[in-house]
Structures are given as structure tokens and as C-alpha cells.
């Protein structure tokens, strides 16, 4: 019964996180429209941060609660899930195609970001300085994207259309304020429920907090991406999936981890199991993603099946060795 309560908390937290993130984005975009901020700037800042707000609040919330392994587990687990599950499952229904040329620079940035993050993890706890480096880099990436798109009327028009599509923006000032308020209240609330439920569930299941962060919580925060990609595949419009995953992974590593490390009360320690296993899986997934996006340019059914099988295997391993924090007891451990 108690486990069911924690599962309900996890579910409730996730739904609140998603709703609050959505409200925050809609309120912020509506406010930026009233303030006359160009859509391209709003898209690269408000929407980019707003859509990653669930991951951000989960990571910050868990670092504040004294369970930093959930914070780092969420980031690493999300990046693994984004590649293996979010790209793998939809490919079973319809092949994912992409523009190899356009995604080339994004692939390089994502690989560079992943490598930097892994190196920082091996160098020790991720403190304020390391967080500032990561966060500084995402600002550089965003400014570069804005410059790249600015002056291109087609890109700006596309950004404006993308910004408002299906959002249902509030128009009245009071309603905009309400959206922002509910978003800002709902995000920490949802994060609190999810972290609390996750930590309690980990205790019940006899697994580490890191395993819960890598699995249940990471999977939860990746669900919106999975739903979007799955719907796109079912409608046979999965050409944006790879680009979305690339952006999401880069944002997780640089913005979410960077900001979390900057505001955490103490440096975020990297569990040993991450150094010997999970970070390697994440790096491997990043390499696979880069290969699929920049070399192959598509993900067919067989590749999708392979990705999905890899994710399943990863989950099985995580829960098979709870005493090592999810890492298999391989040589040297």
C-alpha cells in the first residue's frame, strides 16, 4: 500500500511538473508578446528553459533536499532515455528521418557537451565553478542560435509560428499573471512530490536513490518528448525528433546540471557507479545519436528495435545490481 502511495506521488508530481511547465511557458510567451520581445529570442530562452523546467526543478529540488544523486541521475538517465527510448520506440512505427547537414553542428555541440560533462564528473564533485562553466556554455549556444537565425525572415516567421502553435496563450494581463504564478508554484510542488515519492520508493524497493533518478524519474521527465515523438511518428512527421533530442540532451547537460550545481548548497558528488557504468552508457548513447543524426540520417525499424532493446537491457541491469547503485559488478568493482 505504501509503495502504491509513492507511485501515486511520482505520477502526481510528474503531471504537476508537466502542467506547471506548460503554464509557465504559455504565461511567459504571452508576456514576452506583450513586451514586444522577438519570437526567436522568446523561443530560444523562455521556451527552451520552460520546456526543460521539469528536469531543472527535479534536479534543483533533489539537490536542495540532500539527495544530489537523484539530480545527477535524472540528467544522465534522461539523456540515455532520450536516445534509446524516445528515438527507439517511435522508429518501430515509422522511420525517423533528418537533415544530416543541418544537424551536424548540433551533433558536435551535443558530443562536446557530453564529453565535457563526463570529464567534469571524473574530476570530482560538480560545484559552483563547474556549474558556471556548463551554464555559460549553454548561454553561448543560445546566443549563437539566435545570431544564426536572426535576419533570416523565413526562420523568424517559422519561430513565430512555432511559438504560438497549439499553445493557447492567455491574452489578459491577470490571466498571464495567473499562468506564471501557477507555473512557478506548480513546478517546485511537482518536483517535491516526485523526488519525495522517488526517494521513498527507492527505499521500499531496496535500490539506491541514484537508480531511481536514472530510471523512474528520468523516464518520467522524458515522457513528454516520448509522447511528442511517438505522435509525430504515428502522423508520419518524425523529421524533427532527432533535432529535438539533440537539443534536449544538450540542455540537460549544460543548463539543468549547470544551474543545479550553481544553486546546490554543496558540490554534487558523482556516485562511483556513474563513473564505471552510467556515464559510459550515456556517452555511448551520445555517440550513437551523433552517428544516427550526422552519418546515417535516419532511424529504421531495426535500429529502433536495437535502441529499445538497449534501453530495456540498461533498465534490467540497473535494477539487477541495487547493491552497486545499479552498476554491474564488473572487473575492478
Amino acid at each position: 500500500m505504501a509503495s502504491a502511495i509513492y507511485l501515486v506521488e511520482l505520477f502526481g508530481g510528474l503531471i504537476y511538473l508537466l502542467l506547471a511547465g506548460d503554464l509557465l511557458v504559455r504565461g511567459s510567451v504571452a508576456m514576452s508578446k506583450r513586451a514586444g520581445i522577438p519570437p526567436i529570442v522568446a523561443g530560444l530562452t523562455i521556451v527552451a528553459f520552460g520546456t526543460s523546467a521539469p528536469e531543472l526543478f527535479i534536479s534543483i529540488g533533489s539537490a536542495m533536499k540532500g539527495v544530489p544523486e537523484v539530480a545527477i541521475g535524472n540528467v544522465v538517465g534522461s539523456n540515455i532515455a532520450n536516445v534509446l527510448l524516445v528515438l527507439g520506440l517511435p522508429a518501430l512505427f515509422y522511420p525517423t528521418l533528418c537533415d544530416r547537414k543541418a544537424l551536424g553542428p548540433d551533433c558536435v555541440m551535443m558530443l562536446g557537451g557530453s564529453l565535457l560533462f563526463v570529464v567534469l564528473c571524473f574530476l570530482g564533485p560538480i560545484g559552483f565553478a563547474q556549474g558556471a562553466v556548463l551554464f555559460g556554455l549553454i548561454l553561448v549556444v543560445l546566443v549563437r542560435s539566435a545570431r544564426h537565425t536572426r535576419g533570416d525572415p523565413e526562420a523568424e516567421a517559422a519561430a513565430a509560428e512555432e511559438l504560438e502553435r497549439g499553445l493557447g496563450l492567455p491574452t489578459q494581463r491577470g490571466m498571464i499573471g495567473l499562468f506564471l504564478l501557477l507555473g512557478l508554484v506548480g513546478l517546485p510542488l511537482g518536483a517535491h512530490l516526485m523526488v519525495e515519492g522517488g526517494v521513498q520508493l527507492a527505499s521500499r524497493l531496496g535500490v539506491s536513490n541514484a537508480v531511481i533518478g536514472l530510471s523512474v524519474i528520468a523516464l518520467g521527465t522524458s515522457l513528454p518528448e516520448l509522447a511528442t515523438t511517438l505522435l509525430a511518428a504515428l502522423h508520419r512527421h518524425s523529421d524533427v525528433a532527432l533535432g529535438n533530442v539533440l537539443g534536449s540532451n544538450l540542455f540537460n547537460l549544460l543548463a539543468v546540471m549547470g544551474l543545479t550545481a550553481m544553486v546546490a548548497p554543496s558540490p554534487i558528488p558523482v556516485p562511483p557507479s556513474f563513473l564505471s557504468f552510467d556515464l559510459l552508457v550515456m556517452m555511448g548513447a551520445a555517440l550513437v545519436l551523433a552517428y544516427l543524426a550526422s552519418v546515417q540520417g535516419s532511424i529504421g525499424r531495426r535500429a529502433g528495435l536495437a535502441l529499445l532493446a538497449s534501453y530495456t537491457l540498461y533498465m534490467v541491469i540497473l535494477f539487477s545490481f541495487p547493491e552497486t547503485g545499479g552498476a554491474p559488478p564488473i572487473a575492478g568493482r
Binding site: I5, V8, E9, G12, G13, I15, L189, L193
Partner: peptide
Amino acid sequence: WRLAVSLSAFAIV
């Protein structure tokens, strides 16, 4: 309280 908030997520769905 946590359960009430969590269960209200079904209302969101």
C-alpha cells in the same frame, strides 16, 4: 496532503 495533490493530477489528465 501530498496524496491529495497527487490524486488531483488525475483531474489534470
